[in-house]
Write a protein that binds this DNA or RNA. Structure first.
Lengths: 231, 231
DNA sequence: CGCGGCTTTGATGTTCATCAAGTAAAGTGG
DNA sequence: CCACTTTACTTGATGAACATCAAAGCCGCG
């Protein structure tokens, strides 16, 4: 749980391009002193809504979900993020506290960079600022577009959307293990758990997918796409 | 339509604090050469989804709505923005094209700053970058939170939410003229026009509000709040 | 004055959440 | 390793919430 991994190899880190491509040698050295790599096991919380923002975090490997508690107390899943995407960093410049909680859906490694360092780089390195701004904006755009898309689909459309999303964006494979419970899917697309299950069953009976526990295989991608769009 | 107003008085502009507080004298002078003030009449389009981003725009006076076309072709209203808020600038750093359309709900004045100038300032002035980043992030957060909030409310809750939103955030008055049609309200909170009207009628019959055409007066704020939250 | 758009209300049917009951799977303690 | 408990999943039945359709009233505008 939450183990700190050493030593620093930021300079040759495969992930350097993703976020820190604009930093020079010296800055990367500094980065080493300002970051910690932490590993989380499936189900562990990476950070919690309402906590003070101390680190800029991004996912190096694994899978994570972004969620919040709604006013009613239920969980609302906002996004599922893959490696190289930021984790609860949508709001690190807009406030003092994390807006969302993040937890690991699979065993994950997270790179945590002290927020002061990020701020300092942001202030002093215009290209870094522009790059980071662009990436965070893009993620915000995606979340907003997705939320609006989901809202105007019917049940079947939403479920089809999630299946296609997992297939295309997360696993890039027609067959995959669903990393979340049925209830979490329901919290993601805003419907009841029972109806998520029911709709999946219908897709199965109609021969659109094959289901074996947590494993889903997409058989008829085209039809799912039609259902998702028309939804 | 789209008249250009001169001369430049950015230095003493009341709105300078809102966005450009971190610019020095010299930069403000430059700003003058890189901005145009445009006025729009009610209903006119300020910018259009899909167009190339050329200006950073913010509302000096009036009222505007942010919206997009959903895959089905209907309009989805994303936000209603007051003066000093950015207009279709959520995505100016993430892509080449505007993600959303913006139109004037009332006669409005928009300050349009060349995007190259904003980028240049962003690159060269760390404090400006940090400030702008914070503001855009905050607006993104707000949109996301609002969309998620609305999603898990029932019809009455959504309508109550909109009325309270207009009262508290937009007009700061218990009595106001609704700046949008019933259909636009429906597009904003994701329900049918008929049911928006029906719900408003019910609130009227229950004595929560008084309605006279486009004018709404809130009588029982407390009860509306309960309906909105419980929704 | 008449036309077209926005609004309103009622009636109808569909979609979806909820409830209930049962089964499978996954921990937990002896 | 097995009985026990709990948690996740599944399916059907029911009713509530909501969209849709239709018809009529209202209002501004040429």
């Amino acid at each position: 749980m939450n183990k700190i991994i050493k030593p620093c190899d930021c300079e040759h880190c495969d992930f350097r391009d993703a976020v820190f491509s604009t930093l020079d040698e010296q800055s990367v050295m500094e980065l080493c002193d300002n970051k910690e790599e932490r590993s989380f096991r499936k189900g562990e919380i990476i950070n919690q809504e309402g906590e003070r923002i101390t680190y800029f975090k991004y996912l190096k490997s694994g899978l994570a979900k972004l969620y919040r508690k709604s006013s009613g107390g239920e969980e609302q899943v906002i996004a599922i993020t893959r490696p190289l995407e930021f984790v609860s960093n949508l709001s690190i410049f807009s406030g003092e506290k994390y807006q969302y909680s993040v937890s690991a859906l699979e065993d994950s490694v997270v790179c945590c960079v002290k927020i002061e360092f990020i701020r300092r780089m942001f202030m002093n390195n215009g290209r870094f600022a522009l790059e980071l701004m662009g990436r965070i904006s893009a993620m915000n755009d995606k979340v907003i577009a997705q939320t609006l898309d989901i809202r105007q689909k019917n049940l079947a459309g939403r479920v089809a959307f999630v299946i296609l999303y997992l297939m295309n964006d997360i696993y890039k494979s027609r067959i995959f293990e669903v990393p979340v419970s049925r209830k979490e899917i329901a919290d993601y697309i805003g419907m009841s758990t029972a109806n998520v299950i029911r709709t999946i069953s219908e897709f199965k009976h109609d021969g659109l997918i094959r289901v074996e526990g947590k494993t889903i295989e997409v058989i008829n991608k085209e039809k799912l796409e039609i259902i998702s769009i028309r939804g």
